[in-house]
Design a protein around this nucleic acid. Sequence first.
RNA 1: GGGCGGCUAGCUCAGUGGCAGAGCGUCUGCUUUACACGCAGAGGGUCGGGGGUUCAAAUCCCUCGCCGCCCACCA
Length: 914
Amino acid sequence: MALHEETTTRRLDQIPKAYDPQAVEWPLYQWWESNGYFRPRPSKNPDRRPFVISMPPPNVTGALHLGHAITATIEDIMIRYHRMLGDETLWVPGEDHAGIATQTVVEKQLAKEGTDRHALGREAFVERVWEWVGQYKSNIQNQHRRLGVSCDWERERFTLDEGLSRAVREVFVRLYEEGLIYRAERIINWCPRCMSAISDLEVEVEETPGLLSYVRYPLEPAEGEAEPRYIMVATTRPETILGDTAIAVNPEDERYKNLIGRCAIVPVMNRSIPIIADAAVDQSFGTGAVKVTPAHDPTDFEIGQRHNLRSIQVIDFDARMTPEAGPFAGQDRYEARKNLKAELERLGLLDHEQDYTIPLGHCERCKTVIEPLISMQWWVKTAPLATPALNAVRYGQTKIVPPRFNKVYSDWMENIRDWNISRQLWWGHRIPAWYCGDCGHITVAREDPTACLNCGGLKLEQDPDVLDTWFSSWLWPFSTLGWPDDTPDLRRYYPTSVLETGYDIIFFWVARMMMAGTHFMGIAPFHTIYLHGLVRDKQGRKMSKSLGNGIDPIEVMDKFGSDALRFTLATSSTPGNDTKLDENRILGARNFANKIWNASRFVMGQTEGIAGGIPSLARLAPKTLADRWILSRLARLTDDVTRLMEEYQFGEAGRRIFDFIWSEYCDWYLEVAKGQLQEPRLRVCTAHILRSALDTALRLLHPFMPFLTEEIWRHLWSDAPENEWPASALIIAPWPSLDGATMAALADTATEDDFALLQQIITGIRDMRKRINDTRDEQELPKLNRVAALLAGGRRTSLLRQQAGLIERLAMTEPPTIERKLAEKPSRAMALVASGVEVYIPVADLFDIERELARLDTRIEAARAAVERSRKMLANEQFVTRAKPEVVQKERDTLAGHADTLARLEEQRRELAG
RNA sequence: GGGCGGCUAGCUCAGUGGCAGAGCGUCUGCUUUACACGCAGAGGGUCGGGGGUUCAAAUCCCUCGCCGCCCACCA
């Protein structure tokens, strides 16, 4: 509580004039954290389930980028909202060991030192990575802290922690025992730079300009055939010719029917291969005949399996040609392509080439071109896991926001392919499988075995590979809570509530967590999946290191403050849609923070000594129209924002709060209050309303701008006795909520209509005053400070008389003359009509009649068009009979209003012209 | 080849059946006793094109056009 006690003053002259986020944010964060506000606190309402989020774990050695910032912001908004609602709230943070990514970073470091991991050896290398992790882990943590994340750091987890590693091991063993993990030789995506297999998801396909080469294969001569004949195929990867073991044609293809069963000669290698028929071949592409290389192409691999073809690996794991490649052995794959083509040309077998766009797979991590290769790997059989995960979404146990991603999720789940989980790396969870040197049995066990489970042999060797990074993060929602142990946290906080992340990792992470959750826990890991869009640069490009277009959130926070960044990220888009981050918007949010700061400074300064404490909204006694108006607006705001938060419409909620604070509280009520505070009769009540409304607004805004609001809030309450404080800090203060009676008492349409009329009149007078002064300025006459005003109020007369002072002060008029009907209308005056009220600003010594007539004509024209439009609608029998009655009635009122306005404007014009 | 999203003011984006909105930018004023990171006022859009449904469409349906993304084994 120390920080709060330091705050003893709210004197205007002692609070800095401009909000300085740097001075406020870090101390506040430490204060929150040291006071334990981020820990879950039991709810007073036992019927409410705890609200829990597992934070998507960032790469342990990474730097914070805008993707993390938007994730952290949206999650913190939800967490803070629920904490204020009084829910038991838990946000579990952590980091991911990020297998390939981290290993690559450290390898680069080693390269700089002129060494590599093989020189170091496995153990020393892993040791080295741990050092690196120790050095960088705190970076991402502290960068996250700067964003204001109110997560429970005491429950922080790391995917390579002992506990989480145990979860990984348990899952592997269990799935193996269930027959859902198996080892198989398949064609896989191989990254020759990472020297590892990667999963289908980790391959990025890019359309690349290339060549389609047409190559003739000589046919083995049939009996009695003298002339040499050829069969021609098209290929984008000529070097794979060396590994061809067949040529395939479509069985229906008339051109080749008579060749099926015959043999062709692989150029250069002079190997005889069969011509086979397979339905996978598209007759219309290329020549309709396909070379088949089972060792280096997924489709060919399948054709090979169907036809029992031999696989000849001609490209090695390091992307160099194998001895099987004959004269090209040892050459790089692209070098071999060039050389082979030259050789084909020399042999007269390269018929021609054409430009062709090739979809090329690249390694997601290092962008190296993927080589499809046959290799022994570990796999998860995913179909049995996908079904429950699919059903959880299908039957509404888990809802996706926005719902259009249902289809993306379901389509993937329905067509799911087995997951290659082994990686030929050193950094990660080692695969818990041991091979027996005696009998060859594979022992998969929870504890490291000392002898073969089959033959008892002691020559055991552990599989050298590690598991895909996602094999640990798919357990995140329960492994972080203590699973496989039956811990209190696991029982209390699983399933979690909302999973919030970018839509770009639906398959990588979200879908797999759904599978793991349903399979191991028997229930989906979250009831809601909220997917945000990607943050892009000004041109709409994805931010990336290589493009150098990334905006560094730390720099943004240095410059504008965390709250400004958070508010911008939260309000710049809608769920699932990408955001082009615009620095001007951040600037706007920074200005908003400053606006609130100064409004608060003013309110606290003005109300000092007048009003101790802050009455609740229900206990206020509004005395004026403006009082009732601001409370009505505030009541509606509270209602709307709460609803929007429940609907995950955080952007809209933030914008509403912005509009209220700036355009209603500051622009109007604060200005009105300046006058009311001068009146002894109104002072106390006005001060109370100013403070109470500010208090509520700060609470509503807190999830979006936690630092600024907390700082002001503790100043605001500092003169109230401690036992009156709603809470020791805004972060745990109650979320504003109005019971039905209070809502009914505060929200009042008639009041809002009355005030809207007043605003219309005041704005109108300001406009006329400005035009008068512009004209005077042109004529080199001194400007008028105040103008005279005559109002014909009609049935609104008493309202206007009550509010005359307000009009005078806010519209800068002399004390206005207000009559039901003016006995004599001023002949030389500017005029306007608003909801049946006529307003005249007489201009004695200067008047540009032509200009005023033109202005009136514009207004008359607009009124006439409006009347026309309404008349036409009401004349339409279909409208009158079919539209909802209240819509028709509203239209009638609108017409009456416009007609009245039109008539009065025309009258004003006649008098002016006449 | 399938699927999804976007196209609204000069720019960045809200709005998803009932007379088009915000911020920034523009123009004009302003030391009005919180804020020039401000105040006041103004101007600016046939809501991508076409068709349909409806009393009524930016909003629902169809279609076309760009721009972007995701998925997919045509070499």
